[in-house]
């Protein structure tokens, strides 16, 4: 086997335009067989567009795409039989039951899993006979996962599979993905949850505005920050925070109103400086806490905005 065969997915210079709008602006991606690659980025970054091009659902404006060594233009039928897909949103057939829906999708594939097996993988045994219309949002998502798994795919594409799932269901899904990886399957996952990316993915790719802005293992990416600690600070008046940018101990700073996130290399050196600076400016510290940096800090440092617009709770 040449090293090329180790790649499940190879993407070079992928560009996608919708009219004048540029959704993807030259994306390069390599996904190795048997690994889980996490695609992360804020809303509208181009994750879904990238994934749908890899799934053969959209045609790229420019760029090279190889999936399992094949091209969509020439091997579409063979590729579809080997890919499992969960779209970001799908309205299933309301009138069908869970079991019927899975049986329908199973019938399309050459070597499907047993219907019961696919259903039990996503823990929907109780809902076998329920119409899909009556499922809760999270149950629908689990059914969508069962439909992605039932063809026993070589590559599984999951576009935000755990958005809207409760913590237990999320962990269940992680187990399913881990089991798949143990069987040598490849997973391409998009997510807004850092924790999920860290647990499931060997490697991560951050994209923003259609470009790759960083890539590597979670540990590498956090190390790339060059900051051992993060200080979260709230001060009054907000203007005093601007003075902090001058501090030498600082690796990075993001300010939003009266709050600031400071990335520092050595806490014991940076913290006194920060407090002194605020005191000299006549400001008052309202809140201060410190923590280890996360992937979200990496993203914040790269783009100036958080991965999830709504903040970092969750």
């Amino acid at each position: 086997m040449t090293p090329k065969d180790e790649l499940a997915i190879e993407v070079k210079g992928l560009v996608k335009r919708f009219g004048d709008a540029v959704a993807l602006d030259g994306i390069d991606l390599d996904v190795r067989r048997g690994e889980c690659l996490g695609l992360l980025g804020p809303n509208g970054a181009g994750k879904t567009t990238t994934v749908e091009i890899l799934q053969g659902l959209q045609a790229p404006t420019a760029g090279e795409v190889r999936v399992l060594g094949m091209r969509w233009e020439t091997h579409a039928a063979a590729l579809r039989a080997r890919l499992g897909v969960a779209l970001q949103e799908t309205r299933l057939v309301d009138a069908l039951t869970v079991e019927e829906m899975v049986a329908l999708f199973a019938s399309f594939y050459p070597r499907p899993l047993a219907v019961e097996q696919a259903i039990s993988l996503v823990r929907l045994e109780d809902k076998r006979q329920a119409r899909t219309l009556t499922l809760s949002g999270g149950q629908k998502q689990r059914l969508a996962l069962a439909l992605a798994l039932v063809g026993d795919p070589d590559i599984l594409f999951l576009d935000e599979p755990t958005t809207g799932l409760d913590p237990q269901s999320r962990r269940d899904l992680w187990d399913v993905v881990a089991g798949l990886k143990a069987r040598g399957r490849t997973v391409l996952l998009t997510t807004h949850y850092m924790e999920e990316a860290e647990v499931l993915c060997e490697r991560l790719v951050f994209i923003d505005r259609g470009r790759v802005i960083a890539r590597g293992t979670p540990a590498e990416m956090i190390a790339s920050l060059g900051a051992g600690h993060v200080i979260e600070l709230e001060a009054h008046p907000a203007s005093v925070l601007e003075r902090l940018a001058r501090l030498e101990a600082l690796v990075g700073l993001n300010q939003e109103g009266a709050r600031a996130t400071l990335r520092v290399e050595h806490l014991h050196r940076a913290l006194p400086e920060v407090l002194r600076e605020i005191a000299e400016a006549g400001g008052e510290v309202l809140h201060l806490s410190t923590r280890r940096p996360t992937l979200d800090d990496v993203f914040l440092g790269l783009t100036g905005h958080s991965l999830r617009g709504e903040g970092r709770a969750a």
């Binding site: 579809r80 799908t90 309205r91 057939v93 399309f108």
Partner: peptide, 14 residues
């Protein structure tokens, strides 16, 4: 098509 079910089916070997 509106519910993206056609898209989902198009991603299968159906």
């Amino acid at each position: 098509r509106g519910g993206k079910l056609l898209k989902r089916l198009a991603a299968t070997p159906m």
